[in-house]
């Protein structure tokens, strides 16, 4: 466990250095939040019944902006370069499990910028932009638990994106495609509950909803605390499945790479 913790710590420290960039990113996230919210508000002005209240939508949008950096939308650039130059083969000479190493790196990559951005953004949104608080103490608790699982799920997906580089020599085209699909189906563009019912029900079953849609709806009480166990079960099962898939990909990919001679 020790080496992975050390990797985690140094990566976090490195990423925390770019404070000016973080401030810029924060301003951008706030502006996007307003934009998304204004569009959804406009639709709500048409009246008519909706499966989420406008206030739940507001919480959803601001949480989405706060935790955007956690979403697995990009690969670990260092690992990708290692694969491209072939130096990844040296990693096999070290006494560490490659999947765990990449997972630890992904954890740092997803955690540090998220911490940096989510705390100030949520503070501002709650105090200034009219973001509602959690529906209840129970909702908040389940939300927190669910976000932890969401983080693991996001990292499992990040490693899969990164590992896809072991197959395509054509740069990061494949991982971009995967990320685009994941983002579209996660509820990041619009809350999944607002999709037509037949579509929303299908998309929610996929793993991507576990990173965005489900935890955010726990926060606002759109999914009541008594149903929270279903969300956690969904996230846990998918995490286990995706870790297994990622592990398989890394093992097969590295075997392929070493057979080809790097």
């Amino acid at each position: 466990m020790r080496p992975y913790l050390a990797v985690l710590r140094t990566r976090c420290r490195l990423l925390l250095q770019y404070r000016a960039a973080a401030a810029a990113g924060l301003a951008t996230q706030v502006a996007w939040g307003f934009l998304r919210l204004m569009i959804l508000e406009a639709f709500y002005r048409a009246g008519g019944p909706a499966p989420m209240t406008l206030s739940q939508v507001s919480a959803y949008v601001w949480l989405g902006q706060a935790f955007l950096a956690m979403f697995p939308w990009n690969v670990d650039a260092d690992v990708r370069d290692q694969v491209r130059t072939g130096s990844v083969a040296y990693e096999l000479a070290r006494p560490i499990d490659l999947y765990s190493l990449w997972f630890a790196r992904a954890l740092a990559m997803r955690t540090a910028p998220t911490l940096l951005r989510s705390v100030p953004l949520l503070t501002a949104a709650l105090l200034l932009f009219g973001m509602p608080g959690p529906a209840s103490a129970a909702s908040l608790m389940w939300f927190a638990a669910s976000m932890l699982l969401a983080l693991l799920l996001a990292c499992a997906l990040t490693v899969i994106l990164t590992a896809s580089a072991l197959w395509t020599i054509s740069g990061d085209g494949a991982s971009r495609l995967l990320a685009a699909v994941a983002l579209s189906l996660s509820g990041n563009i619009a809350p999944l509950a607002l999709l037509p019912d037949w579509l929303g029900r299908a998309v929610v079953l996929l793993p991507f909803s576990g990173i965005v849609d489900l935890p955010f709806r726990l926060y606002s009480g759109n999914i009541p605390p008594e149903n929270a166990w279903l969300v956690l079960l969904h996230q846990s099962l998918w995490t286990v499945a995706l870790v297994a898939l990622g592990r398989g990909m890394v093992n097969r990919g590295m075997r392929r790479l070493t057979v080809m001679g790097g």
């Binding site: 085209g173 983002l183 579209s184 189906l185």
Partner: peptide, 18 residues
């Protein structure tokens, strides 16, 4: 880099379609 081009265009298509 045709293969990369095709995949990239496809990912953009997915994103904009969504």
């Amino acid at each position: 880099y045709r293969a990369s081009f095709a995949l990239y265009s496809a990912s953009q298509l997915v994103a904009t379609l969504a």
